[in-house]
């Protein structure tokens, strides 16, 4: 019995125009074109999408969960980046 050596692809679907593509899952396929066709059959059987991206899983670079605290630390102490940091009197309109 031969083992499947088809690469793993991650699948992203745009649900409707105006929305971002969102990761929906993964699948195996021999090449990019078949990955796209398989993704259509697997993830959009009920009009769930108007556009699909597939990308080989090995091509994705991801942050590591082990270092998530130090990695995201730079934004942790910058509360002044949020609108709620600024005290404005309640009777100032449209702000």
């Amino acid at each position: 019995m031969t083992k499947s050596s088809w690469p793993l692809y991650e699948v992203f679907v745009r649900g409707k125009r105006g929305l971002n593509h969102v990761h929906v899952g993964s699948l195996h396929a021999p090449d990019d074109e078949m990955a796209l066709r398989n993704a259509r059959d697997l993830y959009t059987r009920r009009n769930e999408g108007v556009s699909i991206w597939v990308v080989k899983a090995e091509a994705i670079t991801a942050s590591s969960p082990d270092e998530k605290d130090p990695f995201f630390a730079p934004s942790g102490d910058k509360v002044y980046r949020h609108p709620t940091f600024y005290a404005i009197p309640e009777d100032v309109p449209h702000l």
Binding site: M1, T2, S4, S5, W6, P30, D31, M34
Partner: peptide, 20 residues
Amino acid sequence: AHEDGAWVREAATAYARKKE
């Protein structure tokens, strides 16, 4: 079903390699 489909999986792999 798995064994009968082996040639399809192999052919698709060979085709992908050839195109590459």
